[in-house]
């Protein structure tokens, strides 16, 4: 299993993973938007990156899509929910800091939700790469917000459950 350790701090969560691939290849998972799309969003609802300016200062703008490729909305309305990454620092191919939060189509923050910062560090090991991702949050609300970004407010999960229930009935 690639995850070797997780740590819960007062105001942060750290996950450490080891991959059997060189640092440059793991870096590509962050740099190449077509690759990011395949791992960032939850299964069945890939993130679609409409912009990925992998530079400082630069932004990535994405939305979650359902399996047929149509945008999914966090609030159950037809409006597409966008989110953005804002690159704080990039030191290829070993270190990266990103601010992440809900945004408008242009990547500007929207709503009252705070943005969260995560730092990524890649180190070569004998067999590949060790990746450490540390996410900072100041309050439980921020942690919830990050869960919301990952799962789109539980809406998609609820939708999936509805599908399962409907499938059972037929």
């Amino acid at each position: 299993m690639p995850v070797i350790d997780t740590q819960r701090h007062d105001d942060a969560f750290t996950v450490v993973a080891e991959f059997a691939a060189p640092v440059e290849r793991v870096w590509q998972l962050w740099e190449d938007p077509r690759k990011v799309e395949r791992w960032w969003g939850p299964p069945g609802y890939p993130a679609r990156f409409v912009r990925h300016d992998f530079t400082v200062p630069g932004k990535s703008i994405y939305y979650m899509a359902s399996e047929d490729g149509t945008p999914a909305s966090a609030d159950g309305t037809d409006a597409t929910s966008y989110a953005a990454w804002s690159f704080v620092s990039i030191q290829a191919p070993t270190a990266l800091e990103i601010d992440n939060g809900f945004s408008d189509e242009a990547g500007e923050p929207v709503g009252d939700y705070p943005w969260n910062r995560f730092s990524v560090r890649l180190e070569p090991t004998v067999s590949g790469t060790r990746m450490t991702v540390r996410t900072s949050f100041e309050t439980a609300e921020e942690l919830e917000q990050m869960l919301g970004l990952g799962m789109l407010d539980g809406f998609l999960a609820a939708l999936t459950q509805t599908d399962a229930i409907l499938a059972e009935r037929t």
Binding site: P2, V3, T6, F13, V15, A17, R38, W39, W40, P42, P43, M131, V133, T135, L143, M146, L147, G150, M151
Partner: peptide, 11 residues
């Protein structure tokens, strides 16, 4: 939150 990242790392 941990499950979210474990999923990402598996992918």
């Amino acid at each position: 939150y941990e499950a979210l990242w474990r999923g990402r790392i598996d992918r």
